[in-house]
Write a protein that binds this DNA or RNA. Structure first.
Length: 226
DNA sequence: CCAGACGTTGTT
DNA sequence: GTCTGG
DNA sequence: CCAGACGTTGTT
DNA sequence: GTCTGG
């Protein structure tokens, strides 16, 4: 599961990293991104990769927000099959938050790459057109079972794609190759990742500042349990 | 054919 | 809306 | 995910 | 307790 993350990179770094050819909105780095908010999404346009802004959470008219999509089921669930076939995106991040239960409280933990770089979460997106010609863009983050590092906190984690996987995931010629796409949706290598505790203030979705990513001292509870 | 489901996860 | 189960 | 709210009625 | 908003 992935329901809170950050993307604190500046635009040039992001553009270079993912070879973005077109930016369609006023990008701003973020420290504490929550479901239903607008997030940065990269899709493959006709000419080049595009950076767009989408609402985090698909909104099927019959149901609630779909913030995550189970990668194992995505090629067979009717609600997702079409998106899996041709509405794939990546959702860039440089850290996601998980919660560790310590006694009666839950404390936020940040999961990053050891190199502290930006990484690509696999996603699906949808574009709704309303009667007045307006468009609503939405997206969801694909999840898979957790690797050894994340499993201490949560059974599910976002699907993270390395450079080569991103290329294939966004490639429209893969639209008819669900099996090959499916093979990309696996847990990321735990030895390339790192987890550390962050301030309890991250828990408040309105807190949007650098303290969200700063390492916090372990709690007394965590020390006792060691 | 119609009716009903359709999405995710954690919790113990 | 689309798909599955009966 | 977490934080915070969570009820009712008629009237203009 | 459960639901909504971010």
């Amino acid at each position: 599961m992935c329901e809170r993350f950050s993307l604190t990179a500046e635009l040039p770094e992001l553009s270079e990293r993912y070879r973005i050819g077109q930016v369609t909105y006023a990008y701003k780095p973020r420290y504490n991104i929550a479901p239903t908010q607008q997030v940065a999404v990269i899709i493959r346009g006709a000419e080049s990769r595009m950076l767009e802004e989408h609402r985090w959470g698909l909104v099927p008219f019959w149901g609630k927000d779909a913030v995550n999509a189970d990668s194992a089921a995505v090629h067979e669930k009717p609600a997702y099959r079409k998106l899996f076939g041709k509405q794939r995106c990546i959702i860039p991040s440089n850290g996601f938050y998980v919660w560790k239960t310590e006694g009666k409280t839950r404390r936020p933990i940040r999961i990053v790459m050891k190199d502290r770089g930006v990484f690509a979460m696999a996603g699906l997106y949808e574009v709704w057109k309303d009667s007045r010609g307006g468009e609503t863009r939405t997206c969801t983050v694909m999840t898979t079972r957790s690797n050894r590092l994340v499993f201490d906190y949560n059974e599910r984690m976002p699907v993270i794609l390395d450079e080569r996987d991103v290329e294939m995931w966004l490639d429209p010629t893969m639209n008819g190759e669900p099996d090959r796409l499916q093979s990309l949706l696996r847990p990321y290598a735990p030895e390339r990742m790192h987890a550390y505790p962050v301030s309890q203030r991250v828990a408040d979705p309105l807190i949007e500042s650098e303290e969200c990513v700063e390492e916090a001292a372990p709690t007394r509870y965590a020390l006792l349990r060691r």
